[in-house]
Simulated assay, not measured.
Amino acid sequence: MSNTQRFEGKVILITGAASGLGLATAQRLATEGAKLALVDLTPEGLAAAVRSLPAGSETVTVAADVAQLSQVQAYVAQTLQRFGRIDGFFNNAGIEGRQNLTEDFGAEEFHRVISVNLDGVFFGMAEVLKVMRRQGHGAIVNCASVGGIRGVGHQSGYAASKHGVVGLTRNSAVEYGQFGIQINAIAPGAIMTPMVEASLRQMGGEDWESVGKTFVEPNPMRRFGKPEEVAALTAFLLSGEAQFINGTVIEIDGGQSNKY
């Protein structure tokens, strides 16, 4: 864990902050002095997240559904009410959805996944960009996926939504670089989070750990990634040390995307 204080005095907004990559990133940034606005679906999950942070961390928590524009506007407003600005935004909240062939995926499930993973990212970016443009600075990291840069199978909604996140990232980076705002995306592979565990349980039931071992066998590093490894990358992109990286999608998958 870093001993630096790159985020001293900075305000960072994180969606999907109660578990997985969002929680790991919140924990990492808190150790570096960030003031955190944490967004997730339930107050209980957010309260647990805050308890996991270092003592004395400055936080505001907002329970919100990122697929609802009014609730996105509310989490941005409450962040500004508490801290007055937003220096960085980890636009992270997302779901995988059920696995199925495209023909069997279903319209309702497809729209459910799109609404969280793509609408939610767009709504968050649109509202936060208004703030950052007024400020004249800011950094955004959108959470895409390796499923946003290649096909993965049985995940029509997820793949479509994450490809959309990549497109939004590249398009908006072109628009907003002139305003001192950098917008990038990360593309995690198989990172051992509750969402990935749930996916493995869909495939293997109680034998999900064995399925997981088989799942990562083709990976050049022969293992799952760790949430804290993704948090370290996200922290770098938000820290101010990477200001000329803009419109980039960075894979963090052990090299698997390079293996065909």
Rank of each mutant, 00 (worst) to 15 (best):
G164L: 09
A64T: 04
A26S: 08
V62H: 01
L118C: 07
R201P: 09
I12A: 02
A159D: 10
V11P: 00
D104V: 06
Y75I: 12
G9E: 03
S161L: 11
A232W: 02
V66P: 00
E197F: 12
A242R: 09
Q68A: 14
S161I: 07
T15M: 02
T193Q: 03
L238Q: 00
N246Q: 06
N100H: 11
Y176M: 12
L238T: 03
E32L: 05
I250Y: 10
I86G: 00
N117I: 14
A30D: 05
E251W: 09
E197I: 15
W208Q: 05
A126P: 01
L101F: 14
E32Q: 01
T193M: 08
C143L: 13
K10A: 09
G204P: 03
S70M: 04
G167N: 08
I140Y: 05
I252C: 07
T31P: 01
G189K: 00
F7P: 00
L36Y: 02
H154C: 13
Q202V: 14
V50Q: 02
F122S: 10
G22I: 04
F215C: 03
G33S: 04
T42L: 10
V165D: 08
M195N: 11
V196Y: 01
G255C: 10
A55R: 13
S172H: 07
S145Y: 01
F123C: 00
R112T: 14
G94V: 10
A231S: 09
L69N: 05
T4D: 14
V11K: 00
G9V: 03
E197S: 12
F236T: 06
A67H: 13
S210M: 13
G164R: 01
Y158M: 10
A160N: 02
G124Q: 03
A93Q: 01
N100E: 13
W208C: 02
M221V: 15
A24Y: 01
I252G: 05
A93K: 00
S57K: 06
A24D: 03
S19L: 12
E241H: 11
R150H: 09
L101E: 14
T102C: 15
A26Y: 03
Y75F: 15
G56E: 06
K226D: 14
V141H: 06
V72K: 00
Q243S: 15
A26M: 05
F7H: 00
G225S: 07
G94D: 04
R82C: 09
V128E: 03
A242C: 11
A144T: 06
N117Y: 12
F179Y: 13
V131K: 01
P188I: 05
K10T: 08
